[in-house]
Nucleic acid binder design. Structure first.
Lengths: 149, 149
DNA sequence: CCTTGACCTTCCAATGATGGGAAGCCTCAC
DNA sequence: GTGAGGCTTCCCATCATTGGAAGGTCAAGG
């Protein structure tokens, strides 16, 4: 099975399959005489596993751990659960940050006339945040990793 | 005012100030004879504006529009409102995607014994997603930009 | 047999926002 | 005048992903 077919069957792009191989997330694929990579149905299963883990927002390093557990027939489900649970917490943190942004913006937008006059509470808040804003966005929540990934 | 002081006063790191200048988000700073950048209190206000917009999750391109409106005394508040509202929608999309991930994971985690046995519904779902999963993550929500930023 | 188009290979680059670090110059306080 | 610390530019790394260029391979059809 060529890389293109494996890509279609797994939902992982050919580019990403090569990248995962290069970075060691997946083992080096078999090669034909032509140099083409050759994938087995088992390989496609692995790629699908990866694809689904990505869909759930796992980072590649976490997927690496999950793959190891997947392959480990004597794994402890506790290890899997721990990874998943800590990922849930991370997602919830990100959601919390995004929700704070939405709340703040929603408040500002609802105060903005949205007409052809220049006065605008949104601009005013960006100039000098109100005390409400200070409550919603304490210094510690500021510049950190809220926005990433 | 040196760049370090402007950084401290605005909450934008010196690195980022230089980056914003380089990418044209902010105009080139005045220079002293020594070559040091020199910032006025007005410049610091602009940096604070940027910093706050970043805290609200605006991308740099959006901040650029907001800065133009900020400087435009004859702006229409409708333009500001439109930008903010569309940003809210974008944030809500991201939240939605993250919530779907959390929901799916939460369901799996709550079914996982989390002991020293290998059987694990989380691993099982990554191998072959259940129909519940298919409901939560339709094909259209799959590989896209859910995870980004 | 040869061509054509679709596929594969590797390598390099860019994204966006940020941090890290090196090499060298500037400034201020002692 | 010396040392510490701040400034300059330049390059590199992150993370996951996409794009493209240059060149080799394959299969079908003339």
């Amino acid at each position: 099975m060529n890389i293109g077919q494996a890509a279609k069957a797994s939902g992982v792009s050919a580019k990403m399959i090569r990248y995962y191989e290069q970075t060691g997330l997946i083992p080096k694929a078999d090669r034909r005489d032509s140099g083409y990579r050759d994938y087995s149905p088992g390989d496609v299963n692995m790629l699908r596993f990866i694809r689904r883990a990505r869909d759930l927002g796992f980072a590649v390093t976490e997927i690496n751990e999950l793959l190891n557990l997947w392959r480990d027939r004597s794994r402890h489900s506790a290890d899997v659960k721990r990874i998943a649970q800590s990922h849930i917490f991370e997602l919830q943190d990100r959601i919390k940050g995004l929700n704070q942004m939405v709340d703040t913006l929603q408040g500002l937008v609802s105060c903005c006339a949205g007409d052809d006059r220049p006065d605008c509470p949104i601009i005013a808040d960006l100039e000098e945040p109100s005390s409400d804003r200070a409550l919603l966005m304490p210094a510690s929540a500021g510049i950190g990793r809220l926005r990433h990934r």
